[in-house]
Structures are given as C-alpha cells and as structure tokens.
Write a protein that binds this DNA or RNA. Sequence first.
DNA 1: GAATCTTGATCCACATTATGGACCACTTGG
DNA 2: CCAAGTGGTCCATAATGTGGATCAAGATTC
Lengths: 287, 287
Amino acid sequence: MEQRVTSTSGLSGAQSVDRALSLLSLVSYFGDQGASLSELVDQGGLNKPTTRRLLLALMRSGMLEQDSITRRYFLGEEAYILGTLASRRYGLLQISRDSLTTLSAKTEDTSFLSIQRETSSVCLHREEGTYQIRTHALQAGYRHPLGVGAGSLAILSALQDEEIEAILEANNQLLLAEYPNLGPSQIREDVATTRKTGFALNPGRILANSWAIGLAIHYPDGRPAGALSIAAIDSRMQPARQVELVALMQVEAKKIEARLAHLQPINGRIKRPIIPARPGTRVEGAN
Amino acid sequence: MEQRVTSTSGLSGAQSVDRALSLLSLVSYFGDQGASLSELVDQGGLNKPTTRRLLLALMRSGMLEQDSITRRYFLGEEAYILGTLASRRYGLLQISRDSLTTLSAKTEDTSFLSIQRETSSVCLHREEGTYQIRTHALQAGYRHPLGVGAGSLAILSALQDEEIEAILEANNQLLLAEYPNLGPSQIREDVATTRKTGFALNPGRILANSWAIGLAIHYPDGRPAGALSIAAIDSRMQPARQVELVALMQVEAKKIEARLAHLQPINGRIKRPIIPARPGTRVEGAN
DNA sequence: GAATCTTGATCCACATTATGGACCACTTGG
DNA sequence: CCAAGTGGTCCATAATGTGGATCAAGATTC
C-alpha cells in the first residue's frame, strides 16, 4: 500500500522512532511560537493520529510540552537537560557567546551564530545590537537552506565541492520554490566569491536592504563547525565597513577555533555520514 | 508471552518511542565516558537486539553518536542543538552561570547547579573552585535520588509534602539498596531541618568528610527550579562558615530568581504530571 | 596458539504492535 | 446556523518490532 525508502544495511527498524525524532526536530524549527498539530501534520508528512500519537510519546518523555491553552507544542525540559549535558562535547554556543557579545558591543549591530544541520543552516543564537534599526530576518531557531544568508553561505563555502553539489541538489526544489532570487547557480557563484574574498556577503538577497556578513568557524580538521554573522541595513554595510567588520570577526573566529580545539577530541572519531539519509522519507504514491 | 503495564487513557502506543527516549536518557547519565551496549542492556531493561535497534535509530537522528573505536554511545549534536533551542524557555543554567562563577570565586570552593528530573536530581554544571582539596562526589550529569546530597535535598524540601511522600515512596527500594546511611526516614528529618534553617546541609552522608550546602531556586509560583550547592571538606564547613556561605548563596539565588521571572512566562501553563509514569515498565514474569 | 570468555552486532520466524480512514467535539466566522 | 477549520480519538487491518539463537572479533588464559 505504501512504498518506503528501505535501508540497505542490516538490523533496520524502529521506524516510529525515526518518525518521532523527525517530528521533534520539526517542532524545534518553530521556536518560541511553538507548533500546532495541523502544522506538524502538514509539514511532517504524517497523518493526524500518527502525529498525535508520536507527540504524546515525546511529551511523556519530557522532550516536548504542550501549552494547555493554545494547544501548541514546544520543546520540553528534557530536551534542555540533554542539550546541556551534551554541551561538553558540542559546546559551540557556550564557547562563542563571549565573541558574539563582543562583536555586537563593538559594532552596535546584531550578530548571530549558525550551524549546519543536514542540508540547512540553523541559527543557534541572536545577540542584539544597540543600533536603532535592526533586521529581524534571522532569529534563533530559524532555518535556511545552506547558502541562503551570510552565515549559511559561509558554512556552505567551507564544505568540499562534492558535498556542496549534493546539498544544492537536495535543496533544489526548495530553493526554486521559496527563494526566487537565489537559485542553485546563484549560490554556486556566491560560494566562489566567498572563497575568493574570504568572507560571505549577503547583499539583501532574502530581505531587501538587510545585508549581512558571515565567517565560518572551523574545527581543527578543517570542517566547518558553524559561522558567525553580522547583519545591518545596507547603508551600514558599505565596502569600507565590510572590511572593518570582517577584521573584527576574524579575531573572534580565531578565538573560538582555539577553544574548539581544546574540546573533547573525540569528535573526529565519530561515525557520521556526510549527508545522512532522512529515514521515513516517502516515495511518490503514498496513500 | 509478556505482560505490560497498559495505559488507561486513549490513544496510547508508540512504545518503541518511549523505549528509545528512555534509552536516550539513560545514555545521558553516563556523561563524558559514554555508555557501552552491554551497560545499556543491563540498566535499560531491554534485550540486546532491541537496545541496539533503538540506539541505531537514535544515531540516525543525531541524538546519539558512537565512538568508532571504543564503540561507546554518547549524546550527539542534535541533542545539543535541541537543548540550545529549548534554552530560551528553560535557560536555568545560562541564567545561573554567572552566579556559579561568582560563588566559586568568592568561596574558593566548588559550586554546582542541580535540577529535578522525575524523582531524582541531576547535576547540570560543576564550577571548579581553586581550593586544593576538592570533593569529586558530584559531577555534571550525575544523578541522585531526591534528598540525597545538598542541592538535591534543597529541591526536595521545596516541594509539597504530598509530592515528597510520593517521591520517597518511588525511591524507597533504591535508597535502601544504595544509600545505607540515608533511608526515607532520615531524609524526612533532613527535609524538616532544611525547612527550619532555610538551607540544606549534607554532612558527609554520601562520601565521608565531603560536606555540602544547598539552596533552592524558585520559580515565581514557588515551585523549585533547581538548586545551588557548594561542596567542601568538613573542616571548611563549620557552623560559622556555613552561615557565610548561605548568605552568599542567598544573594545569588535571589539574582537567579529575578532573571527566571523574566523568562517565557508560558511555563506555568504547561501540562505536566507531578510524577510521570515511566512507560515501558515491565511487570514480573517477562521472559 | 588453541581454548575460553566477553562484548558488539545481527538474523529471521513470529505475533504484538503501529497504522490511518473515518469520526467526534468544539470553535470561528460569514 | 451552517460550513470550514481545529484538536483529538476509535478500531479493524496489516505492517511492524521482538528476542532467542547465532555469528564475529577481540581479550585473557594456559
């Protein structure tokens, strides 16, 4: 009745776990406003009873919670605890917080930390600047396809060509549908420019007049751990100031990279596919 | 062939999700050293293939990772990301970090932040002191039944009598088995003392000569959000110094409570049972 | 270096488990 | 007051997870 992408290696299964965790991840993208059941049904690719059943399981474990009035679903305390316990291995935000504060203090503009998550970038933190005109195109939890936005582009540009192609391929439909100004070919150009100049520039491609500069942060082995970015209105992003900002950001990126190198060095030994196959992905013809 | 505790309310199910998340939580208790498959089998109550299958699912989603050499399982990057995104609602550690630094700097002793997790307390952070003799009875990720340890006792004492009884009841076996010096009746006494003096004292009950003082942190509605604690050898915990330490801690607890009050006020509206029933619990006679 | 243990990992027949179309209850708005 | 939207659930069906047995690969022993 239904076709699934089947795994090739032995001992697969636990599909409901895949679905549940995929839902959990989906909820996380809604951030502070939370997700409603129907939104999750629409975007999660599962039907209502199944979605609800998995949400209940996630709530039983504390990973999610539901607002009893609005009925919306939010990340729960258990998610916070696990993340806190995991942060000794992946404490990029902890390590970067000082740098973000410094950047926003010195530049008066809003700065961000983003990381890669599959074929997207996710904003982990937004550090407010004091300048009166601020762009709100990016907030913690927001996700964009890799290459869309300054930090996102910085991360993409730090990947290997082969990975970049795989990612652009995977995002192809989404890019064409949601970002008419930013097709794969435009992103390929942007990557080239980023590599040449040494920093990523988003000249208002997502929101007019909202410009940003991004700089990748690298693990000791060269893989990108994430990216710093600073956003401002175009008048505050003219070439002369771009150079100033990049210089400040480079100093902070270096600091972060130094601290990253002292983290648990286990990271390099971990099994992890380059582009993990999303399990539960459906093939045409469902239902 | 097997009997399960069945839920009474409608639309239950997704048991493998319960099991998987329960495993995830179990892995988190191993902290930096990670968990081996057989340890998880022993402590998780599931057999090997099932455990492994669920671990694979958790790894597929990035919640866990496996060291390719030692084969041990650790919390993964996805767990970190989710936790970071959840931290805007539950950012107790973020909010408390300054206070911990201050406390350890002023007292030279090691300070801790703990929170309640079901019927246990979990240490979220350990801030090292500079004093040369330090107790290592408590580290981030470590768990104790509520009432065991200063922070843990502070939290327990801040709960309502009815909850305390339910928790002591749930932990009864564990307490008798693992903490011979600390039966339920001793804890009830400790709670009374804590409420009278206004702070929790652990006079070396877990590890001889390792004393600690704990102070609960409250949400605006009075529920405990967690606890600060400071540990030192007994000679540095004589009555006079106890008073000094408590005074310092009270200042910091007040600060934290003030910041907590400004967090997302949604917390109060969340559906959450007092003592959630662990699903997947088996009844005698399995296998 | 053969024999023995331990640990990680997997196979596959079996039946317990999750699935989802249809449905209910409630709220919104025209 | 009916239509459309939402959150939530029932239950017959069949797909899913289960776990005893087994394999493979180090350790340890003698």
